[in-house]
Amino acid sequence: MTALVLRHDGPGTVTVPGPRRRLIGLVVALAALLVLLALSVMIGSTAIAPSVVWDALFHPSDDIDQFAIRDYRLPRTVVGLVVGAALGLSGALIQALTRNPLADPGILGVHAGASFAVTVAVGVLGVRDIGGYMWFAFAGALVVTITVLGLGSTRRGQSPVVLVLAGVCVGAVLGGAREALQLTDPDAFDALRSWNAGSVVGRPLDLVWPILPFFAVALVLAFAVSGPLNAMALGDELALAQGVRLVRTRVFAIVALTLLAGGATAIAGPIGFVGLMIPHVARWIVGPHQRWIFAYSVLLAPILLLASDILGRVVMHPSEIPVGVVTAFVGAPVLIVLVRRTKASGL
C-alpha cells in the first residue's frame, strides 16, 4: 500500500497513482478482506481449534463447537461484511454529494429516522425482537431521508447546504421526540440502549437476506452516478457544462446512500466513523476519482468493521464490546492521523 501514497511534489500539485497501481491496491485490499473474513470465523470469545472451524464449514455435524461457528461466527462475519460495505459506500456517496469531507450518512437523518422508528416500534407498538424492529428502522431511515430531500429542495433543485441543514433540523426534532418517548417508557429505553451501541451480534442471516436486494440496487445506482459526481466536484456550473443532469444525479445518489445506510443501520444499529473515515482513506489512496473511491470504500469498510468486531470479542473476555464502540475508539485516532498527514482527504 505504501507504493500508493500520494506525493506532494510542490505547492498545488498532487501526484495520484495511475490505474494500474489503483488496481493493484484494490487486489491488496481484497486479499486483506479475505484474511479478515477468515480471522473473523476463527477468532472468538471461545477457543475453538482451526480443525473444528474447518469441519464446521466443510464437514458439518452436530458437534456443539461447530454450532458456535455456523450459528454465531459465520452470521456475524457476513453481517460485518455486508454492513461494512454498505456504510463505506454510503459514506463515500454522501461526501461526494455534499462536497463535505465531514459528512457521514447520519447527516441526512438516516440514524435519527431509524432510531425514532425503533423507539416507536418498541415503546408504542410493543415490538420486542430485532427481526420486528429492523424493518421499522429501515422504513424510518427511508421516510426521514425522503422528508429531508423534500425539505431541502428549492426551486433551483437540491442545494447540498440546504439538504444538510434540513437533515440536521429533522434529526434534532426526531432526536428530541425519541428521547421523550424513551424517558416515559423504560422498555423502549432498554431496547434503544442496546440498539444504539451498534452491533453485529445476534443478527440471524434470515434477517439480512431480505435487505440485500436493496443494497444491490444501491450499488448499481452508486456506480452509475460516480462519473457525474466527479464532474459535480468541480462545481454545478462546470458539471452542467459537461452535460451532467444535476437533479437526477443527486436523486440517484440520495436513493442509493439511503438504501445503503438505512439498511446497514436497520441491521446493526448506528455505527459511527466507518462511513466518515473510510472514504477519506480511499481518497488518500486513489485521489479524487469517485468510481475508485467507491470501489475502495466497499472493500476497506468491512476490513475496519471486521477488525473492530474481532477486537471487541477478545479484549473484554468473557464479555464482548459492541463493534460500534470499537470503531469509534479505533476510527477516531486513525482519522485524525490521516487528515493530519495529507491534504488528499480534502474534497
Partner: peptide, 13 residues
Amino acid sequence: WTSLPFEQLAELS
C-alpha cells in the same frame, strides 16, 4: 452483570 455471547453456551457442558 456480565453479558456472555451465545457462542459461550457450549461451555455450559
